[in-house]
Design a binder for these strands. Structure first.
Ligand SMILES: [Mn+2]
Ligand SMILES: [Mn+2]
Ligand SMILES: [Zn+2]
Ligand SMILES: [Zn+2]
Lengths: 140, 140
DNA sequence: ACTACGGATGCAAAAGCTTCTCATTATTAT
DNA sequence: ATAATAATGAGAAGCTTTTGCATCCGTAGT
């Protein structure tokens, strides 16, 4: 029993070839953050004939199961990353699309306080910092 | 010369009826945060025959001119609000869609520090807190 | 006030991303 | 192995947003 099959079973999902391949893709990808299209194309390149609709369905199921996190970076389309349990936020380069991660307990704490002050029961939050990355700052 | 026409002229935009009406709509709307569709429908209801494409074009021009701010709340579509000069972030109710605003200098400061530490030249940021608002917490 | 020009508008078509439909196929429990 | 049930693939459809193009309008100059 591979680790992947166990993850799927634990999530209450049948172990199918598309789900296994997509999970492997997310685990082994160079870039942690992938669009559905990215996953689909990478699978095609590695010879797997998996439909785009299936990629979308499976990623949504993974999200529901807590296996992946979905992000809405600027540009409209969803980006997915493997959920390794640790919450973090993102800082993105507007020139080259690079994505870095960070976690700041001061910010997290202030957010909880702000929600409380406003009378909200907080369920989630998203914080994106946009800028020009070190590599892109050099180039004209 | 109305205030609106001056705003438009100052932004280098011709004073046209659609632009005037859209600007008025943003100024007088009950809810500060509107989608393009919201603006379009409200204009129809008040008897103005303005095309949806024009609403989108004008809102984008207003954004470029700094007259409005565009936000990407969860759900995908863009939301617009009049830019009153003051930066602020948002806390939204996932039940009823209510939107509240806040500004926290501690968070702003930490964001600048995080960008600097990562070597990024910060250009922008977006922070959304999601939760259940005071009104919705009572109801089952 | 009249003209001429360039920009603005409206409509319909198209684009881009995502979801849905449905016939076919694969997985799981027995 | 079989039956019951869920998953898949292909394409159609859905939504928001953008674009092409003919027509219209605002503006600057007369
Ligand atoms: Mn991440
Ligand atoms: Mn606001
Ligand atoms: Zn970069
Ligand atoms: Zn609410």
């Amino acid at each position: 029993m591979s680790t992947e099959s166990n993850h799927l079973r634990k999530a209450g999902l049948k172990v199918t070839l598309p789900r296994m391949k997509i999970l492997e893709m997310l685990e082994n990808s160079e870039t942690r953050h992938l669009s559905a299209e990215d996953v689909y194309k990478s699978l095609l390149e590695s010879g797997e004939e998996i439909g785009l609709a299936t990629v979308y369905r499976v990623l949504t199921q993974f999200e529901t199961a807590g296996l992946v996190a979905r992000h809405h970076f600027e540009g409209g389309h969803s980006m997915f990353e493997l959920n390794e349990g640790d919450h973090h936020d993102h800082i993105l380069c507007v020139k080259c699309g690079r994505v870095d991660e960070f976690m700041d307990e001061t910010i997290e704490k202030r957010q909880r306080q702000i929600a409380q002050d406003a009378g909200y029961e907080i369920t989630d939050h998203s914080l994106y910092i946009y800028g020009i990355c070190p590599d892109c700052r050099g180039k004209a």
